[in-house]
Design a protein around this nucleic acid. Structure first.
Lengths: 217, 217
DNA sequence: GTCAGCAATAATGTTAACAACCTGCCGGGG
DNA sequence: CCCCGGCAGGTTGTTAACATTATTGCTGAC
């Protein structure tokens, strides 16, 4: 008995299952199995899979159906390089448009971040990280870049998670986040862009290090 | 009797028809009609339309099917702002990686451009413009940004076309293109990025002017 | 023991028919 | 004269069956 808006609900459920790791990269997603698991028809499953494919989370092989797309470290680095450009742009734009209320909210997030780091609350810090980047995106109010960034985000979630577990990583990124907020609040676009660039450059280098560490265990 | 790779062929045909203007923005794309025109089944048409929707060329309304997505001037400007960032990044990267053969090819394109401008061959210039941006994209060899830029390109084709008809526009952009190539060939990443930024900034301003001119006829 | 060929199975790609939905028109009532 | 309800046509959304393609496991010969 499917309720009205299963179209989006099923897609969200499958996405959640993939991001949660229920399905591993390169694992085939068999339509009949998904039908049973999510209580939907094959038609809905196919639609959901095609949408997920357009977001880059799964890929189709001719006559072999859908499977979870494997994202290599090289690709994560590429994605982060693009994020560096687009989020840098958003930070500059946010610095031009930020209101007093928004500035206060940004500063509150960095205060919470600092508290989370001092208490070693990794999950909390990771969540605040998402909040901060999201807040800047909202202030920038740039539909097109927001859409593209959202497309890229899902593909790196698994790796972002592993990055946040690197010991000492939060203490490195915390001052970078603070510098970004400082520049945005000061309404200094080029400083905001530079701070965001520096932050994501450091993320890129962390990924490179992680990649090398995994390649030679 | 559909040949093997109609899947992509039909999609390409519909895309072409839209870009050529056979279907106007906001016009509904009736599946049965497309079936007859392109000699395909409704299934293939639906697949093609969904792919086109994921590229942003058409949009779906619930229970009302697909229609050509209307792209406003505001959106074209947003898209060009993103292009400015990504193509600037690609230009910098191209400057780091360019080989001698590639440099020669780039310079040849600018020579052809200059010739096309002096002969007022607008269409030829527009084509060379695409070639130049494409060559830089190939030299940069950055899958992720190339994918996103391709996604954005289609959406602005119609407006790009109208921009290339603005009198005097080629003589403005020609030196900008030459500056980009010069910096790339000189293997100067930051100059290449700056030159690309300046070029696309000028495109943005041309769009703004065009938008204002259309708004108040 | 191993490998090629083959048949059975499983999964996807496709088709055609059906159901749900929006739209525009017509007629009746206020 | 205008507004409202419902009916008819057309269009999309969905379902179930069918065709096609990969995969797997077996058989038999070498």
């Amino acid at each position: 008995m499917p309720s009205g808006d299963d179209r989006a609900a099923v897609q969200e459920a499958i996405r959640g299952a993939i991001l949660r790791g229920d399905y591993a990269p390169r694992q085939r997603l068999i339509e009949a199995e998904l039908c049973e698991r999510f209580g939907s028809s094959r038609f809905e499953i196919r639609n959901a899979l095609q949408d997920l494919a357009s977001h880059g989370l799964v890929e189709f092989q001719p006559n072999r159906g859908a499977r979870v797309r494997e994202i290599t470290f090289a690709e994560v680095i590429e994605i982060t390089e693009v994020r560096r450009m687009l989020e840098g742009f958003e930070a500059a734009r946010a610095a031009e448009r930020v209101t007093k209320a928004e500035a206060a909210a940004l500063k509150q997030i960095t205060r919470d971040m600092r508290a989370a780091v001092s208490r070693s609350e990794l999950l909390r810090y990771s969540d605040l990280n998402k909040q901060l980047h999201g807040a800047i995106r909202d202030i920038a109010a740039h539909e097109t870049s927001a859409r593209l960034l959202r497309q890229l985000r899902d593909q790196t979630v698994r790796h972002q998670f592993s990055l946040s577990l690197v010991p000492g990583r939060p203490s490195v990124s915390l001052p970078q986040h603070e510098a970004i907020v400082e520049a945005v609040v000061a309404k200094d676009p080029s400083a905001a862009e530079a701070a965001m660039h520096a932050h994501l450059q450091s993320v890129i280098e962390a990924f490179r290090a992680l990649s090398a560490a995994v390649a030679q265990p």
